[in-house]
């Protein structure tokens, strides 16, 4: 039973990553990142089911609330305020993005391989997919033009960091995570405001245009 749930969690993380690479529609991306955040919030509960205690419950519930509900809602709001629905003309198109995603999955697999001996057989895929999520987020940041998509990439990366911490660190991963999450919180806040103002000033939120200011 636990094994099935773990498989389901791992698969959801994997498929949400593929969906993030695959689509150019922002509502779909936000939904995927929300599902991914929710599932990654559940992950420590599934992994540490035997020695679950009150603090773990509370932290997991906070994580689920933040990653799965609050941050996606903020993103949704800034999407509506900025009036963007699609990521048009990203630097890397969806077809190539998918193939690069496969390469990134293989890469994270290769990196995690030495850790294999220290992990139970059925847990092997959790750090692999956590690393994949990190790479995926970084790739989304560098390959997309719109500021909102880059924030989504940043959130994805943070999801990956959290999942990696939850899968490997046994005792106190959450203190570190809370610190990271605070950064993200601020990041989303600032970027949300920035997006809003960029939109007000220039009628578009294409970050690529900013680089022409240098000349």
């Amino acid at each position: 039973m636990e094994h099935t749930i773990l498989n389901l969690v791992v698969l959801t993380i994997l498929l949400s990553n593929i969906r993030l690479l695959n689509t150019s529609r922002l509502p779909v991306m936000i939904l995927s990142v929300a599902i991914q955040g929710f599932v990654i919030g559940v992950l420590p509960l599934v992994l540490h089911w035997e020695r679950i205690n009150l603090s773990l419950w509370i932290i997991a519930l906070i994580m689920i609330a933040i990653k799965g509900v609050i941050l996606p809602r903020l993103l949704h709001r800034s999407m509506q305020e900025a009036g963007v629905i699609r990521e048009v003309e990203p630097f890397v198109g969806p077809t190539v993005s998918l193939l690069i995603g496969l390469f990134l999955l293989a890469l994270s697999y290769w990196i995690t391989f030495p850790l294999r001996a220290s992990l139970p057989e059925e847990l092997f895929f959790v750090p692999v997919l956590a690393l994949f999520t990190v790479f995926n987020g970084l790739f989304l940041i560098v390959s997309r033009k719109k500021a909102i998509t880059q924030v989504i990439g940043y959130l994805t990366m943070e999801n990956g960091v959290y999942a990696f911490g939850a899968s490997l660190a046994v005792d106190h991963p959450f203190l570190v995570e809370l610190g990271v999450l605070l950064d993200v919180w601020v990041g989303v806040f600032i970027m949300g405001i920035a997006i809003y103002h960029i939109n007000r000033e220039f009628d578009h939120i294409d970050t690529d245009k900013l680089s022409t200011l240098k000349h």
């Binding site: 695959n22 998918l98 193939l99 496969l102």
Partner: peptide, 14 residues
């Protein structure tokens, strides 16, 4: 179309 087919390839690779 090429997009969907690359999805098929990626799924097989996964």
């Amino acid at each position: 179309v090429s997009h969907a087919l690359s999805l098929a390839t990626v799924l097989a690779g996964v």
